[in-house]
Computed example of a mutant assay.
Amino acid sequence: MPANSPAIEDYLKTVYAHTEWQPEPITPSGLAGALGVAPSSVTEMVKKMAAQGLVQHVPYGAIRLTDAGRARALAVVRRHRLIETWLVREMGYAWDEVHDEAEILEHALSDRLLEAIDARLGRPERDPHGDAIPAADGSLVSEPSVRLDEAPVGHVGRVIRISDRDPAVLRALDDAGVGPGCELRVTDAAGEASVTVDVAGSTRILAHEAATGIWVSA
């Protein structure tokens, strides 16, 4: 199976995404859950990727990308996030509608078309959710951040990125005026229940589930 097969690309992207915002590597069971496949399927695929020098893995241990695997994963992430940005800016999609479309298109677009999209968009550095778009050479723009549910009361920060895992949460945050680039101040944290923030002079109570998917500047 070639390294640029859609299946391998999906695996590499998922392994990369797991550690993009936290340090713990993904386990085979975690990878199976993230991809919605059987553990036996993960075992076979990881063996194939290890044989191609894309991941490092010991039986029952964590899965880590090699330099080659990381480069391949970043290329797929670049495609995905550029497509999401293009769909929002040029095609009239909302930010909660683009993930599934990008999952399909990221395997279909030629490098030439991707470069044309990147140029037309003005070489964007972040997608509609605030995630950094890797440059063609694999480099990324990053800055120190803290997850909103872990930020102390009184913390003031700019929203850097919001997880796109749940479209319903994205719609709720849109209604609350919370999105990448906005500044907020944490005014109360009710444990596992909610986080209260001030956004542009308005008080917003965000469910804990939403707060765990928001990263603000540290």
Rank of each mutant, 00 (worst) to 15 (best):
T19G: 05
P28V: 01
H99W: 10
E90C: 12
A211L: 11
L173A: 15
P124R: 11
S139P: 04
I63R: 10
E9F: 00
A7D: 10
R147Q: 10
L170E: 08
L184Q: 11
I205L: 11
V46T: 09
A132D: 00
E115C: 07
L121C: 07
V58Q: 14
S5D: 03
A38Y: 06
V76H: 04
V153Y: 03
E44M: 05
P180E: 14
E192Y: 13
P6N: 07
M49V: 00
G191A: 07
S29N: 10
H99I: 00
D175T: 13
A135W: 01
P134M: 12
P6Q: 06
P59G: 02
D188C: 14
A132W: 13
V98S: 02
V77R: 00
T203C: 12
P25M: 06
D188L: 15
G122L: 00
I26T: 06
E150F: 08
S202E: 15
T43M: 03
A176R: 14
K48P: 04
A211G: 14
D149K: 13
P2Q: 04
P23N: 11
E150P: 08
V141H: 14
I104H: 11
E101V: 02
D198I: 11
D127F: 02
G138M: 05
E192C: 08
G69P: 01
P152W: 09
Y60A: 12
A207F: 06
S163T: 04
R123C: 01
A176P: 11
G179N: 15
G179C: 00
A200M: 13
D118M: 00
V37R: 11
E44K: 02
L87Y: 01
H99R: 15
V153S: 08
V141N: 12
D198V: 10
Q52F: 04
R161Q: 15
V216C: 13
